[in-house]
């Protein structure tokens, strides 16, 4: 296994178009990491986009400046990690509780379920005016 580490940071207004820009950033991230298994890229990208979409959809701004979306990506030889920052946003009372109901009837509410299914650990913390989702996925580079 080779020792390597790559970091990227993304920040933008928390609006839907920013999710496409983040996806482009993720594509560039994987281009620089061609030894990450495709299945891991696919799962991690999906989880990060879900978390970022949650920020855009549910972030409540603390003032007129609005919510900012920040994403810090980090890849090492054993792990992929993303810190999803909901900047200048109100705290979530129960951030890790998914929607309930008949899955066949739900047109929304699957995002958190998917995130939990796609990564190894999910944590949420509050720092100052920011909610931070930390998604980690164990991933070993292809030989």
């Amino acid at each position: 296994m080779t020792d390597r580490e790559l970091q990227r940071r993304f920040e933008a207004d928390a609006k839907p178009e920013s999710v496409n820009d983040l996806h482009d950033e993720l594509d560039r991230f994987w281009s620089a990491l061609d030894d990450v298994p495709f299945e891991d890229q696919m799962a991690f990208t999906t989880a990060v986009i879900e978390a970022a979409s949650n920020v855009v959809e549910h972030g409540v701004p603390l003032d007129r400046d609005g919510v900012r979306l920040g994403v810090e990506l980090n890849a090492t030889s054993s792990r992929l990690q993303a810190r999803i920052l909901e900047i200048n946003a109100a705290a979530h009372p129960d951030p890790l509780t998914p929607a309930t109901g008949d899955p066949a009837d739900l047109e929304s509410g699957r995002g958190l379920f998917l995130i939990n299914a796609l990564v190894t650990t999910v944590t949420v913390e509050r720092q100052g005016n920011t909610n931070i989702w930390v998604l980690s996925k164990e991933s070993v580079p292809r030989q």
């Binding site: 996806h23 990208t45 999906t46 986009i49 879900e50 979409s53 066949a104 739900l106 047109e107 929304s108 509410g109 699957r110 995002g111 379920f113 998917l114």
Partner: peptide, 12 residues
């Protein structure tokens, strides 16, 4: 690529 928003749209 499809996320849960896209899946929700398909179900709708």
């Amino acid at each position: 690529f499809m996320d849960s928003s896209g899946l929700g749209a398909l179900i709708g």
